[in-house]
Each structure stands twice: as structure tokens, then as C-alpha cells.
Amino acid sequence: MRALIAALVLGCTMLITPMVVAESPPEPETAASESQKDAAEERATQFVGVRGPEAESVSGGALLLAAYAIVWALLFLFLLRMRGLQRQTAEELERLSAEIRASGDR
């Protein structure tokens, strides 16, 4: 008899539990997806100019100066590298011309 009651209780539990779980509202998932959506919308979507006295003074000036200095420094270094390449080529051409002249003299 006890075994029959235990079997009935187990059967009811197995049947009812999935139904309760299925009917319960998925609140945590909704909250998570909302927070993900908010995070996705955090990126800036426009730049608005300040007019008049509200304009900020030079708090990011050092960063701005560094950025522009980097741009010009890298461009200058690239030009120096090109100058070096051209000098090497000119020297090589000069050497080859000398070799050709020397072989012509022989």
C-alpha cells in the first residue's frame, strides 16, 4: 500500500513540476535581455556642439595635442623612411653605373 502511495506521489510530482515550470513567467530572462538592450544603446549616436559660455575649457587639451603630434610625427617618420629608401636606390644605381663603366673600360 505504501509503495502504491509513494508511486502515485512520484508520478504526480513528475507530471505537475514541468507544467508549473512552463507556466511560470520568465522574469529573469526578460530583465537580462532588457539590460543587454540598454548596454547596446549606450554608444554615442550624435555629437552636439556647445554654443556660448557653456563651452568647456581645455580639459582634454593634452590628449588632443598628443593625438595631433602623433599624426604629424608618424607622417614625418614615413617620409624620412621613403627618403632613406630613395637614397639607397640612388647609391645602388651609382655603384652599378661605376661597375658598368669599369667593365666597358676592360
Binding site: 556642439g49 557653456e54 563651452a55 580639459s59 582634454g60 588632443l64
Partner: peptide, 20 residues
């Protein structure tokens, strides 16, 4: 170009950063 409202003068990096 005006100074940007939120970020201030550092936003002017944008004018070289994006074309780069």
C-alpha cells in the same frame, strides 16, 4: 567647428581619427 557638448575639446581628435 564648435567644441562638443559632452566630451569637450578632445572630440576634435575625431576629425583626424576617422579620415585616417
Amino acid at each position: 567647428a564648435p567644441v562638443e557638448q559632452q566630451m569637450g575639446i578632445v572630440q576634435k581628435i575625431f576629425y583626424f581619427h576617422v579620415p585616417s
